[in-house]
Amino acid sequence: MIEYREFLYVAVTLCALAAVMSKNMLTSAISLAAMSVGVALILFDFNAPWAAVFELSVCAGLITVLFISAVSLLRKEEAFFAEDRTRFRLLPLFALIVAIGGWIAGWPFFEALADYARFGARGQSLGSMLWETRRMDLLGQIAILAAGVLVINSVFAVKKAEK
C-alpha cells in the first residue's frame, strides 16, 4: 500500500520528467505547473500551510504564466530549432540508474544524516519568526523584488526606445 506522501513524491518526479522530456514547450510549462501543485500538496502534508499557499500561487501560478508568455512570444517568431532528442530520450534510463544507485547508496546516507537532527525552537509561530528573527530576510526580499522590477523594466524601456 503506497502512502499518500510517497504517491505525491512519485507524481512530482514523473511531472518533472515530463517537463524536461516533452518536445512541446507548452506541455513542459504545464507539467511544471502540475509539479508545483504536487510540491504544494507535499508542503501541506508537512504541516507548512503558508509555504504551500505561496508555492501554489507563485510557482504554480505566476511562474507558469511567465513561462507560457515566453513560449508564445518565441513561438510567434519561429525561434525553435530542432534539438537532438536522443539525449532527452535517454534521460529516463539515467534517472533509473540514479534512482537505483540512490536506493543502495543514498538511502542509508540520508538515514544516517537524519540522526543528526536537532530539535530547535518549535514554539515560535511563523509570524513572529518572520517579523522578529528573520527581519533581514524581508529586507532581502524587498531588495530582490526591486532588482527584478528594474531588470524587467530595463528591457521594456529599450523596446519603447526602438519603436
Binding site: 508542503l43 508537512f46 504541516n47 507548512a48 503558508w50 509555504a51 505561496f54 508555492e55 537524519a114 537532527a117 536537532r118 530539535f119 530547535g120 525552537a121 518549535r122 515560535q124 509561530s125 511563523l126 519568526m129 518572520l130 528573527t133 528573520r134 530576510d137 532581502g140 526580499q141
Partner: peptide
Amino acid sequence: AMSNLSLAQAVIIT
C-alpha cells in the same frame, strides 16, 4: 520537519 518547522516555512517563502 525534523528540526524547526516555522524557520523552514520562513525560508521557503523567501
